[in-house]
């Protein structure tokens, strides 16, 4: 089904709201991961407000689609998305990382509605998501499972264990999103521990691999909708860390730090000026 310009515009607006929430909550928290959170906002908007079948009012709905954030340190983007989707009151984003908050520094399943798994130690979410996809297959449920991993996270051996399992069991209800932003804590991924040729690696593991601009919502929707029978899918999503906030983009130092008050104000005013482009321009990756 063709996606209308109005739908794209709505999703882009939502991504901007998510980015604003991220800036606000990180500034308030005083610690946390800015770059990856901002860089994936378009993907989260697309998933939760267009692609996924879910209901914030019916958390135990068995047929729901599930999303697991394996690179769980970028949870501000997930928390912001869940708040925008109505899983919990939005004012609670101000409590991120504070004593007694349901918004733990890394997600705690059971603490906050909408969290499908706990996370933090990298690669664990991917195995958990694989288990969910397997259970759905055994029960012949039509729910799909989406999982995001960071590219640096793919240094972990468990990632490849899980990929082999998903491929072996032909979990075609499974979609992996790789946040390919080329940056990890110690520098560029290709310097720290080269992943390339990543596309070929994933293909050889039995996945249908789609490279996509992680900021082009129209392309993201197309990629999510593309299906190859009996093959699990990977969206190799090229993203810009810090996307949407000019002074954060492409800067590794923003991986693990929050903006201060002044920086947050500047970021918010930048985000307010973002106008929807209706998917009319494609990213620099195409």
């Amino acid at each position: 089904m063709a996606v209308t310009d109005a739908q794209i515009e709505y999703l882009e607006d939502m991504a901007t709201h998510i980015r604003e929430d991220i800036i606000i909550m990180l500034e308030k928290a005083g610690s946390g991961h800015s770059a990856g959170s901002l860089g994936t906002a378009d993907i989260f908007s697309t998933l939760y407000f267009h692609v996924m079948k879910h209901d914030p009012k019916n958390l135990d709905w068995e047929e729901r689609d599930r999303f697991v954030l394996s690179n769980a340190h970028i949870c501000p983007v997930l928390y912001a998305t869940l708040a925008e989707a109505g899983y919990y009151p939005k004012k609670e984003i101000m409590t991120l990382r504070k004593l007694g908050s349901r918004l733990q520094g890394h997600p705690h399943k059971g603490a906050l509605p909408g969290l499908e798994a706990s996370g933090g130690p990298l690669a664990q979410g991917l195995s958990i998501a694989a288990g969910m996809a397997m259970a759905a297959k055994i029960d012949a449920r039509r729910s799909r499972v989406f999982c995001m991993v960071g590219d640096g996270e793919m240094n972990e051996g468990q990632v490849w264990e899980a990929l082999m399992f998903i491929s072996k069991n032909r979990l075609h209800n499974f979609t992996l999103i790789v946040d390919r932003n080329n940056i990890q804590i110690d520098g560029f991924t290709e310097d720290v521990m080269p992943l390339e040729p990543l596309h070929d690696k994933l293909t050889s593991f039995g996945f249908h691999v789609i490279e996509v601009d992680g900021h082009n919502i129209r392309r993201l929707i197309e990629a999510f909708e593309e299906t190859i029978f009996e093959k699990p899918k990977v969206l190799l999503a090229h993203t810009i860390p810090g996307k949407g906030v000019d002074f954060m983009e492409f800067k590794p130092e923003w991986h693990g730090k929050p903006p201060n008050k002044e920086e947050a104000d500047k970021a918010i005013s930048e985000l307010e000026q973002l106008r929807s482009l209706g998917g009319k321009i494609t990213g620099e990756h195409e």
Binding site: A117, G125, I128, A130, A135, Q158, A162, F165
Partner: peptide, 15 residues
């Protein structure tokens, strides 16, 4: 390691 994670995901789905 993968086994432990897969098991958790299956447990979250009622297994």
């Amino acid at each position: 390691q993968n086994m432990a994670g897969i098991a958790a995901g299956m447990a979250f789905s009622g297994k």
